[in-house]
């Protein structure tokens, strides 16, 4: 992405961000709360502009095309997103939750749907736990299962990129470990961008990590480099826990 700035009303949230995301790899974005991580990731699939009075400038290139020149709907289908709090559709069954995206795209063939639901749930490492209760409500699952259901739902439409906005912040450590394992598996097929306020998590799952502060990217580097030999003193004081 190139020189992306975003505002909430008059308030500038992120400023002229330039970042590259590597294909089939995990990019982590860390930084103290309020630094613009979530805003940044929401600009990547045009979710930022769904908030009243919010606006975005700059370019976000996906395979060389500016996503702000494409219909938002198709952008969001190619770039999936998982949110901070699990948000399954409570009125739908587990099956319908996963199939929702495909149904939107007009897929009616029951066999194809079944297959896609199966694949996505397996990919999201949820299949074994829910295979006997596919018609139960999505809200009946535990928090960690709900989050994996949301991941399966995002995967079912076969996006190219998967954005994750602090996917584990509402979860307990065991559920978090499961999601992290999952992220590790998913990068074979997808390009992942994960926002987290948990530095250890970034260190564990991301190849590349970007550190943000006050709406700007302070430093981007190979994760190990960034944590072991930070170039900027700001980065260093953050990762050593002096603020944040």
């Amino acid at each position: 992405m190139d020189k992306v700035s975003a505002w909430y009303g008059e308030k500038l949230a992120i400023q002229e961000i330039v970042l590259d995301f590597e294909e089939h790899a995990v990019t982590g974005i860390i930084g103290p709360s309020g630094c613009g991580k979530s805003t940044l990731i929401r600009c990547l699939n045009r979710m930022h502009e769904t908030i009243p009075k919010a606006r975005v400038e700059g370019q976000v290139l996906l395979d060389g095309q500016d996503i702000y020149g494409l219909p938002a709907v198709s952008v969001r289908r190619r770039i999936g997103m998982v949110f901070q709090k699990p948000n399954p559709f409570p009125t739908m069954s587990i099956y319908e939750n996963v199939a929702a995206g495909l149904r939107l795209n007009g897929e009616r063939d029951r066999k194809k749907l079944d297959q896609a639901v199966l694949d996505s749930l397996k990919q999201a490492a949820l299949w074994e736990e829910v295979k006997d209760s596919l018609d139960k409500s999505g809200a009946s699952l535990s928090g960690g299962q709900q989050q994996r259901l949301c991941i399966a739902r995002a995967l079912a439409v076969r996006p190219e990129v998967l954005l994750m906005d602090e996917p584990c912040s509402a979860l307990d450590p065991i559920a978090t470990a499961k999601i992290e394992d999952l992220i590790f598996d998913l990068k074979k097929d997808y390009t992942l961008v994960i926002v987290t306020h948990n530095m250890q998590q970034a260190a564990r799952v991301a190849e590349t990590t970007a550190f943000m502060y006050l709406g700007k990217v302070v430093e981007v580097n190979n994760t190990r480099e960034l944590f072991e030999r930070p170039r900027e003193s700001l980065t260093e004081s953050y990762i050593t826990g002096r603020f944040g």
Partner: peptide, 15 residues
């Protein structure tokens, strides 16, 4: 209806 529900649908590419 919480906004997170709307976001879930939008992020799937819903109009």
């Amino acid at each position: 209806v919480p906004d997170s529900q709307r976001e879930a649908a939008l992020s799937l590419g819903a109009t």
